[in-house]
Amino acid sequence: MNLDEAALRHAYETMRLMRIFDETGRREFLAGNLPGFIHMYCGEEAIAAGICAHLTDADYIASTHRGHGHCIAKGCTIEDMALEIFCRRDGLCRGKGGSMHIADLEKGMLGANAIVGGSAPLAVGAALKIKTRGDSNVAVAFIGDGASNQGTVFEAMNLAVVLKLPAIFAYENNGYAEMTGVDYHCGSGDIAARAGAFGMPAHKVDGTDYFAVHEAMAAAVEHARAGKGPVSIECVAPRWYGHFEGDPQAYRTKEEIAELEQTRDPLTLFRERVMAESTLTEADFAAIDAAVSERIEAAMDAARKAPLPEPADLYTDVYEVYD
């Protein structure tokens, strides 16, 4: 653990923001305040936090339908995100994207994506832009275990290898593709090995361990920034909730979920290790928790009360010019 106290605080705060943002968002969804769907990231926070710790606004990420955590890790402000999941006029996407399409291009966040497997070719495109301009940035595609079987992802990996692009394929193996377990849906059973067979370095780490993700990503970023081509990292971190909120999860037991919360909570694991190996204390974490909760309640409250889009907004931003 070679991170300084500020980095440790930032990592924890980022993960805590993800956790509380989604739990509070779920509460609002169940109360009928959010349209559409909401996909919970709980259990997977260390992945986005560990990956994005190495990125700046000039690097890119392309995300998934389960994208709130990625947004937070990439620096989107939670106040703007809250407005968007409430589909309010002043949200990041003016209420036209909603939970599954939050994007913030100034932060290099190329959008959550409601097409499973949609992120990978887009990240390859961002990496192509980086290489064409001669920059040393990277583009990351977050890809679920379900999306790992999509042809778009295979094509994206191959093209990134062929063109030697600074792309990083961050697989989030959360155990389930919608309702279907990875042991059933992934033919080879090994996402990392399959990615490696495309001709790139392929890491596999415990995605509930912030430090393991952080370390693998450090190596990946160094490789990609040096112009050596793409890298993949499979991060294994089971999700705590269903595919979408409202999924009855008949495909797994309550005991499985309870055990995950008891033994595989990335925030608990982080706290315990950091308290054992640094000067941060229980009180430090409690203070972060309190501040995060307060900030998110305020953001959700403001979003709930924020103005709705105007009816005429339906027609804007289809094209820049069309006549």
Binding site: P121, L122, V124, G125, L128, I130, T132
Partner: peptide, 12 residues
């Protein structure tokens, strides 16, 4: 991948 790469490059 061609179309997606073009879309991602255009977006950025």
């Amino acid at each position: 991948a061609i179309m997606g790469a073009a879309a991602g490059a255009a977006l950025t």
